[in-house]
């Protein structure tokens, strides 16, 4: 667990450092995701080469354990920032209804457009009638 947490933090750290040092237009954690993803592909190569561990049962070791722990309670992590909502009422200064309208409207549009695109392309591809 500790090793996994270290690896996640390490990827994030390298990501943040690289984004800043190289002036990349991508946020640090995004680079961290890509870094971890490539590391896991490399690791897969190494695991495949060994006999004592089957690839199918692989849960990505320590980093998988740490990731499961964090992602299982993903909702919790948004609470502290969300509580700040009460602070921002003042900054919105009477524009709350307009903001809410834009936000809800856009979320509905995004959900519909995204799911429609996904289904449209999926249906074209597999005409074998996935649900």
């Amino acid at each position: 667990m500790l090793l996994g947490l270290f690896l996640l933090l390490f990827c994030q750290l390298i990501g943040e450092a690289a984004a800043r040092a190289l002036g990349l237009p991508v946020p640090g954690p995004v680079i961290g995701v890509l870094l971890l993803l490539s590391a896991l592909f490399v690791r897969n190569r190494l695991v495949r080469g060994r006999d004592d561990e089957t690839v199918a049962d692989d849960r990505q070791g320590a980093v998988g354990e740490a990731a499961d722990g964090l992602l299982r309670h993903l909702g919790l992590l948004f609470v502290p920032a969300g509580v700040g909502i009460a602070q921002s009422y003042q900054a919105l200064d009477g524009q709350l209804i307009a903001v809410a309208a834009a936000l809800v409207g856009s979320t509905v549009i995004t959900l519909i457009v995204t799911v429609a695109t996904f289904r449209l392309v999926a249906r074209r591809l597999h005409k074998d009638g996935r649900p």
Binding site: L5, L8, L9, C11, Q12, G15, P29, V30, G32, V33, L34, L35, L36, L37, L40, Q60, V63, G64, A66, A67, D68, L70, L71, L74, L77
Partner: peptide, 8 residues
Amino acid sequence: PATVALGV
């Protein structure tokens, strides 16, 4: 770190 964990 939870964002990075999405890599998994």
